[in-house]
C-alpha cells in the first residue's frame, strides 16, 4: 500500500480548496552546490504544512524562496495566484500577503514593541497611526503580552520576542504565514508559549508553512507533514501516516533518530 487511508482522506478534504502555494520543479544552487532539487508541492488554502528533515536538507532554503529572500534559479513558484518572477510589483504583492517568522526573531532593536508592529501597516498599508496602534495592541493581547507594548525588544525574553515577531507579521493581515524554525533559538521553557500561539493561529484557519523540529506540534496541528532530505521532498503524508506508518527508509531513519 503506497498511501494509507488517512492520507487519502486528508487529500480528499483538501482537494476542493484553492491552491495557496504551488511549487513546480524548484531548483536552487549555491555556486556548485544544489540546495533544492526539483521541489514540487502544493499547499492549499487554510492548510497547516509542517516541513521537517535533517539539517542541510533544504527546508529553510525552500521556505525562504517562497517570499524571495532567496532567488530560485529553476522552476515556478506561485503564491495565491501571483507568480514569483523578477517583476518587482509581484514580489511586493507576495511579500505583503506572506508573513514570515524567523529563527532569530529579527525584531528591530531600535523600536519599541508597538513601533515594531505598526511599522509595516503605517509605511506599507498607509494606515493611520491610531488605527495601526489599536490593532497592534489587539494582536499583543492575542499573543498574550499586552503589557509589553512600550518596551524595547532587548528588554524581553526570547519567547516574548518571538511572540512579538508573530504579532508583527500578523499586523500585515497576511494570507500565508511562514515559520522558519521559530523555536530553535529558545530555551526549553519558552518553547511552549510560542507553540501555544502557533497552535491558536493554526486553528484560526490561516495557511501556515512551518519548518520545525517540534514533532509534538507537528503531530497535533499539521494537516500534512513533508519530509525533506538532500534538497528533495522524500515523503508527504498526514501525521498519522508519518509517525505510525512511514514508507521511505530515509524517513524511518530520521524518525528513529529524533523520537
Amino acid at each position: 500500500m503506497n498511501i494509507d487511508d488517512a492520507t487519502a482522506a486528508a487529500n480528499d478534504r483538501l482537494a476542493d480548496r484553492d491552491d495557496m502555494i504551488v511549487c513546480v520543479d524548484v531548483d536552487k544552487f549555491y555556486g556548485d552546490f544544489q540546495a533544492l532539487k526539483g521541489v514540487t508541492a502544493t499547499i492549499k488554502e487554510g492548510e497547516v504544512a509542517v516541513v521537517c528533515g535533517p539539517s542541510g536538507s533544504g527546508k529553510s532554503t525552500w521556505i525562504r524562496c517562497i517570499n524571495r529572500l532567496e532567488v530560485h534559479q529553476g522552476g515556478d513558484i506561485v503564491v495565491d495566484g501571483i507568480e514569483l518572477t523578477n517583476d518587482l510589483r509581484n514580489i511586493e504583492k507576495i511579500r505583503s500577503e506572506v508573513g514570515m517568522v524567523f529563527q532569530q526573531f529579527n525584531l528591530f532593536p531600535h523600536l519599541t514593541v508597538l513601533d515594531n508592529i505598526t511599522l509595516a501597516p503605517i509605511w506599507v498599508r498607509k494606515k493611520p497611526r491610531g488605527e495601526a496602534e489599536s490593532m497592534a495592541r489587539a494582536l499583543l493581547e492575542r499573543v498574550g503580552i499586552p503589557e509589553q507594548a512600550e518596551k524595547f525588544p532587548g528588554q524581553l525574553s526570547g519567547g516574548q520576542q518571538q511572540r512579538v515577531a508573530i504579532a508583527r507579521s500578523l499586523a500585515m493581515e497576511p494570507r500565508v504565514m511562514l515559520f522558519d524554525e521559530p523555536t530553535s533559538a529558545l530555551d526549553p521553557e519558552m518553547i511552549k508559549e510560542v507553540l501555544d500561539v502557533m497552535k491558536e493561529l493554526a486553528h484560526s484557519g490561516i495557511t501556515m508553512m512551518v519548518v520545525t523540529h517540534e514533532m509534538g506540534f507537528a503531530r497535533e496541528v499539521a494537516d500534512r507533514i513533508m519530509f525533506m532530505e538532500g534538497g528533495e521532498i522524500v515523503e508527504v503524508g498526514t501525521p498519522e501516516h508519518f509517525f505510525t506508518n512511514p514508507t521511505e527508509d530515509r524517513t524511518k531513519l530520521f524518525l528513529s533518530q529524533i523520537l
Partner: peptide, 26 residues
Amino acid sequence: PKGQTEAAASLGLRRSTALRRVIIPQ
C-alpha cells in the same frame, strides 16, 4: 545584521523605506 534587512523585506517594506526606518537608524 542581515536578518534586519530580511525582516523588513518580508514585511513588504520597500528598500528605501527599510533603509530609512530600519537600517540607517541602527
